[in-house]
Computed example of a mutant assay.
Amino acid sequence: MTGTDRRRWALRSLALGALLAAGGAVQAQSLRCNDAGVREGDSKVWLLRTCGQPAIADSYCARVLLPPQPAVQYPGYPGVQYPAQQVPQVACVMTDEWLYERGDGYLPAVIRIREGKIISIRFGEQGRSEPR
């Protein structure tokens, strides 16, 4: 094995290690209730079945940015496309936030739900809502 091969092998090993470390830091949160768990991506129905009704529930319209529209092609002018305006569009998506008080020794959990799916789980101080 030459010096160049060793350097390549070392760089690949470092890159793989960095990817594995980064992947571990991005793991989704989960919440354990009644000997079962819920996690991001689970349904609202599963959350209700597993953890029951929340102590407090709130619903609001969250602003989300929509992707730009594709180019428009007009009939009668083949091959001529007019780009759509690249102005960011804002839409409203109904979002629920549920607070679960889990008792002494446990941090409260705030679950954010959109379109019937859990999109985030936060605990304690992290559970405070972000500005809408």
Rank of each mutant, 00 (worst) to 15 (best):
R49P: 07
Y74S: 13
P78G: 06
R12I: 14
Q53C: 00
A62Y: 07
A25V: 09
G103N: 07
G116P: 07
R114H: 02
G3E: 15
L107F: 07
Y106P: 00
A55G: 06
R32T: 13
G116H: 09
P131D: 06
K44Q: 13
L31V: 08
T4W: 14
W46C: 01
L48S: 12
D104K: 10
W9P: 00
L20Y: 08
P108G: 01
Q73R: 15
N34M: 11
T4C: 05
G37N: 11
Q89T: 11
V26Y: 06
L14R: 13
R12C: 13
T4G: 07
R12M: 13
E101L: 09
W46N: 10
V26N: 09
C51F: 04
R114A: 03
Q81F: 11
A57K: 12
L16G: 07
Q86I: 07
K117C: 00
L99I: 05
Y106C: 01
L99F: 04
P54T: 03
P68V: 10
T50D: 01
D35H: 13
P67C: 01
E101P: 03
A71Y: 06
A21V: 15
C33Q: 06
D104P: 12
G79Y: 06
A91S: 13
A36P: 00
K44E: 14
Y100N: 00
P78H: 04
A109T: 04
S120H: 05
Q53F: 08
A21N: 10
Y74G: 01
E125R: 13
Q85N: 10
Y77E: 12
R7A: 15
P78V: 03
D96R: 10
R6V: 15
T95K: 02
D104V: 15
L47P: 04
D96Q: 09
R12D: 07
P54I: 02
V38C: 00
A36E: 09
Q69V: 11
W98N: 06
A22C: 15
L14T: 08
Q81H: 08
W46M: 14
G37A: 12
V72S: 11
V90C: 03
S59D: 14
R112P: 03
R112L: 03
